[in-house]
Design a protein around this nucleic acid. Structure first.
Lengths: 144, 144
DNA sequence: ATATTTTCGGACTTACACATCCTTTTATAT
DNA sequence: ATATAAAAGGATGTGTAAGTCCGAAAATAT
């Protein structure tokens, strides 16, 4: 569904957010170790998230990454997915046909559309704040 | 959502089925040209579909591929997807966490589960016969 | 029997997602 | 000022999905 890169991105965002809420700034190595992702590769992903203002970074000693309360509130999963995988995650024809449209639908167009719409709605309705709250209440877990 | 290989597989199955219903046996080159897929690569995919008894093949002159009425009736999209992409299309954690389960769900487990379940249900409820009928009635189209 | 036409199947190549390495930039502390 | 610790960013390597090539096997027609 999502690329591996996007999975790392979501996991990173959630982990950093949780630490930020506890007042901790986290460095790259801490993040990579905590979400079981390759360090250098994770660095690249975090760079993209910073550029899209999904997370923040501070350089120099005692620097690291953080997600402000404002970011946690305004960032939805759809933003993270768009940043890494792009819109085609929930756009585009299920059979890869460029001519497929509402007017000239492919054989699985309407069935597929329903699923994609669900996925998009789910991503648009889930923000970081909600995810962190469930995590803090011990209702969900972020471990390998 | 599906791999490119799987898209070719579904397009092939639909095209061959339509031709079979019109009493025509179709060869590899015809298929590849009609669904705009690479010939040699399509051959590999068709081999897999034949092995899973989704389509039939006849060797030698005037040979080719076909989908019998029985196959059209009993084959559902889920079978084609399983044959090419495997179960992980609608199984597995959305964040790629191996420990994720109903008891220890990942942060997006339940939202994601709902979407996956929809996708699976859609694939399980759509068979080739239905797709061909809509195609014949001019309600859907199989073109690039 | 032989030539022909087709699918089958193994070995190989290519493109791209995934991942690493190393140098530069930025900030901090002494 | 200098040393140090961190992220930024370019260049490079790796693994897997996507795609090619070519000979073998099978069926048919002459």
């Amino acid at each position: 569904m999502f690329s591996k890169t996007c999975e790392y991105a979501i996991r990173s965002t959630i982990y950093i957010s949780k630490q930020s809420k506890e007042g901790k700034n986290v460095g790259l190595n801490d993040i990579a170790e905590s979400i079981a992702s390759p360090v250098a590769f994770t660095a690249k992903i975090l760079q993209k998230l910073v550029k899209d203002n999904i997370i923040s970074s501070i350089k120099g000693p005692h620097g690291g990454f953080s997600v402000s309360p404002e970011q946690q509130k305004k960032v939805y999963l759809v933003d993270v997915v768009r940043c890494i995988d792009g819109e085609q995650t929930y756009n585009g024809c299920g059979l890869g046909l460029s001519e497929c449209s509402e007017a000239t639908p492919c054989p699985i167009h309407f069935q597929f559309k329903e699923v994609r719409t669900r996925l998009k709605a789910m991503l648009e309705n889930t923000n970081i704040t909600d995810l962190i709250e469930k995590l803090e209440r011990g209702e969900t877990f972020l471990r390998l």
